[in-house]
């Protein structure tokens, strides 16, 4: 495995059992993601994009095959070990932001830092830095109900980067936003990738969004189809 490979999927299969029926989503999926990459994953609805992202993020496990992350095999980790691994390595950005409604922006961003051993002062500094990076320093005390969708997604981005994870996973991060706001968010992801070296995997339906990535993978019927375009 090359030094630069962050993620590697080897012969990954994934299926669900629904009653007596077995549904296979992936049969023999192989891919690798290098450090500093920005990958967009596209594909029709039901093609398994979210399922793939869940496996990359360690919230779902493959039925077979191996998933390697930075020299560790994560598909065989226990649930609690995976939880710890997620806290250390992955930042998540969701389509519907998923902020805690009872916490203000600043505290939402601070949430992942409760899982670290950082001091109070250090935590505050990290939160300030993350909020500044997404341009929301002046909204630190706002509740999510007081912010627009774009602003909420920026808070979510700040939350995803505050503990400095190696990889950021986004599932339709702009699916709920208008074009202009979506472009702002995507520029922000691009900036995180280019200037801060974050590796990003983003699921999207939107070809315009995929253009912000360095490359796009097309999923169809459980396989990557050869339409890989290098941006």
């Amino acid at each position: 495995m090359s030094e630069d490979v962050l993620f590697q999927l080897k012969h990954v299969s994934k299926g669900f059992v629904k009653g007596k029926e077995k549904i296979s989503i992936f049969d023999d999926l192989n891919m690798s993601i290098e450090r500093g990459d920005f990958v967009a994953i596209m594909g029709p609805s039901g093609s398994g994009k979210t399922t793939l992202l869940n496996m990359l993020g360690g919230v779902d496990q493959p039925t077979g095959g191996e998933i390697w992350f930075d020299g560790t095999r994560i598909d065989s980790l226990s649930e609690s070990a995976l939880t710890r691994w997620r806290a250390e390595n992955i930042g998540f950005i969701f389509q519907f932001y998923n902020l805690m409604p009872m916490l203000n922006a600043q505290r939402n961003v601070e949430l992942p830092l409760l899982l670290t051993k950082l001091s109070k002062a250090q935590r505050r500094k990290n939160v300030e830095t993350a909020l500044a990076l997404v341009g929301l320093s002046d909204r630190a005390k706002h509740m999510s109900s007081e912010m627009s969708g774009g602003q909420q997604q920026r808070v979510a981005i700040a939350r995803a980067i505050v503990s400095d994870p190696k990889l950021i996973l986004c599932d339709e991060p702009t699916g709920d936003l208008d074009r202009g706001t979506a472009d702002e968010i995507l520029e922000m992801l691009q900036l995180l990738n280019r200037d801060h070296g974050k590796t990003i995997v983003m699921v999207t339906h939107d070809p315009a969004a995929a253009k912000y990535a360095k490359r796009t993978l097309h999923l169809d019927k459980g396989q990557f189809v050869q339409r890989e375009i290098v941006a």
């Binding site: 649930e79 939880t83 710890r84 998540f92 992942p112 899982l115």
Partner: peptide, 15 residues
């Protein structure tokens, strides 16, 4: 439920 799922995703342990 959704919020608890988010907390778990972020890395809060079940315990």
């Amino acid at each position: 439920t959704g919020e608890i799922a988010v907390l778990k995703t972020l890395g809060f342990s079940s315990q």
